[in-house]
Amino acid sequence: MFSIIQAAGWPIWPLLLCSVLAMALIIERLMSLRTARIVPPKLLDEVLQLTRGGLPGPDVVQKLQEHSVLGEVLAAGLNSAMQQPHADEGGLRQAFESAGRAAVHELERYLSALGSIASAAPLLGLFGTVVGMIELFGSQTPGGGSNPEQIAHGISVALYNTAFGLAIAIPALLFYRHFRRRVEDYAMALEQAAERLLPLLVRHAARAA
């Protein structure tokens, strides 16, 4: 591998940097977008069961907010219902929507960088190949003849950059698409959870009024 890097020349160093960044972003997103950290399976049912008997206390809401992303969204609605006991459905829904937008924005962190690497890596590989071809044919002396085997070897070396760029771009693009789909699924789950909690909060507000 080190001999291939040496043969590919200096244009491969930006590709190596892209590969390291892509790997770091993929690992970070795999750890951050786990279901247990975003939408724990039993959390919504527990909150619904607790809220049917009345609004929970501030300490419970604080623990819920620190529990997960779903907890943050549900806690935003509960805080709004506690701070404004006579709030209507529109006000409570707005609290859920604001918290949901902030949560989705946080879930999308670093995805644009990963998508940029997936788009730029093939272009960087092509740039390295062009630079290698220019250097190869520029080294041929006019009228001095040329060795076909040497030219073929030089072309294969120049194509290392393209191959390396594609090797970076393909998994980066696949993981980017995977993470985008996962974020969309989480956004839908957060929205559905808020819709299930909203009627209970509206009922408590009506009783308070």
Rank of each mutant, 00 (worst) to 15 (best):
P11E: 03
T141G: 11
R203N: 05
I168W: 12
G9P: 02
E28W: 12
G115W: 00
G90V: 01
S19L: 13
M188K: 05
T129M: 12
Y186S: 00
G132M: 04
L159F: 09
E66P: 00
L50A: 15
S98R: 15
F127Q: 06
E28Y: 10
V157L: 09
E97A: 15
G165E: 00
S156V: 00
A167S: 06
H105N: 13
D185Y: 00
G57I: 03
G9L: 01
M23S: 14
Y160Q: 02
A187S: 15
G125S: 06
V183R: 11
I38Y: 08
I38W: 07
L114K: 08
L124T: 00
S112L: 13
R181Q: 08
S3L: 11
R109D: 09
A95K: 03
I170K: 11
E106H: 13
R34K: 13
P41W: 06
F96E: 03
T51R: 02
S98F: 11
D59S: 05
T129Y: 09
S19P: 03
V183F: 12
L166I: 12
S3E: 14
H178F: 15
D45F: 05
T51W: 05
E135D: 12
M31H: 07
R34V: 01
A81C: 12
R34M: 08
P14E: 03
G145C: 00
Q65E: 15
S98N: 13
F127N: 04
T129D: 04
P40V: 06
L15F: 05
E184F: 08
E97R: 15
A87M: 09
P40Y: 07
S32C: 10
A169W: 01
M188P: 00
Q84G: 02
H67D: 12
E184Y: 05
V69F: 13
F96C: 10
E66W: 04
R177F: 10
S139E: 08
R37Y: 07
V61P: 13
R37W: 09
M23W: 12
Q192M: 13
E106P: 03
A194Y: 06
Q150G: 10
R109E: 11
P11H: 05
I168A: 10
F96N: 09
S98Y: 10
L123R: 07
V130W: 11
F179H: 03
L44Q: 02
H153I: 01
L43W: 01
E191K: 07
G145F: 06
R181S: 11
S146D: 05
G91K: 06
P11C: 02
A22Y: 06
P56Y: 06
Q150T: 08
L33T: 08
A206E: 14
Y186G: 02
A167Q: 05
G77V: 01
G90L: 11
F96V: 00
S119V: 10
E149C: 02
H178V: 00
R29L: 08
L74E: 04
I12W: 01
L16A: 09
V183Y: 10
H105G: 15
H178R: 10
L111Y: 08
L43K: 02
A102F: 09
F2H: 02
A8D: 00
E89V: 10
H67Y: 07
G115N: 03
K63H: 13
G132E: 00
P148K: 02
L197N: 04
A205S: 15
A8I: 07
L50S: 14
G138I: 10
G154I: 01
Y176F: 14
I26D: 02
A189G: 00
D45M: 03
G100Q: 04
R29G: 09
G144E: 09
F127R: 04
P142Q: 08
